[in-house]
């Protein structure tokens, strides 16, 4: 039982690191290109351990991210819960893909999350983001293999299942 508790702790810590990366100060030119760290980490856990990280976790992580970034409450929560739901539905397929194919799948999920965010921004009369907005999921997809390998190491090291 203590193993389960420790596993949860590791998952929460990785998510916290992702959130830290999401608000870490960056130079002005790089700000629009910040990858969706939280989404990426959450997707890994949802694909690797769908019985532990579900839509609820996605929702909670989204709310915390909203508060941290000062976005409208629910903006990221909506995107993250939808994306984790899809990831859990498809986890068995995504797991066996080679890396590049996985990245493509992740790209689609990241775009969906971004699109939902954009809808929220648009519906609440926010500023319409420029074309660089769509570069973000692409960067995320390119980062995916590294995130996957790192988190798999973490998972195996702490023997979380």
């Amino acid at each position: 039982m203590s193993g389960a508790g420790e596993g949860r702790l590791v998952i929460v810590v990785t998510l916290c690191i992702a959130m830290l990366l999401a608000i870490l100060p960056m130079p002005e030119w790089a700000r629009p290109f910040r990858p969706q760290w939280v989404t990426l980490v959450l997707l890994y856990w949802a694909i690797a351990l769908p019985h532990r990280v579900g839509v609820g976790s996605g929702f909670l992580a989204g709310i915390v991210l909203d508060v941290l970034t000062g976005a409208l409450l629910g903006q990221h929560a909506l995107g993250l819960s939808v994306v984790t739901f899809i990831a859990i539905q498809l986890h068995q397929r995504i797991r066996v893909f080679p890396f590049w194919q996985q990245s493509l799948g992740i790209l689609v999920l990241l775009v969906i999350e971004h699109l939902l965010s954009l809808w929220v921004i648009g519906a609440t009369r926010g500023v319409a983001p420029g074309l660089s907005y769509w570069g973000v999921p692409l960067i995320g997809a390119l980062l995916w293999p590294w995130i996957f390998v790192t988190l798999r190491k973490v998972r195996r090291h702490f023997k979380i299942s």
Binding site: V55, G56, G58, F59, G62, I63, L72, L73, G74, Q75, A77, L78, S81, V82, F85, V120, T124
Partner: peptide
């Protein structure tokens, strides 16, 4: 449920 909750939160907050 999460989607509905998110939408509710969005509307409430906005």
């Amino acid at each position: 449920v999460a989607v509905i909750l998110s939408l509710a939160l969005l509307v409430l907050d906005h």
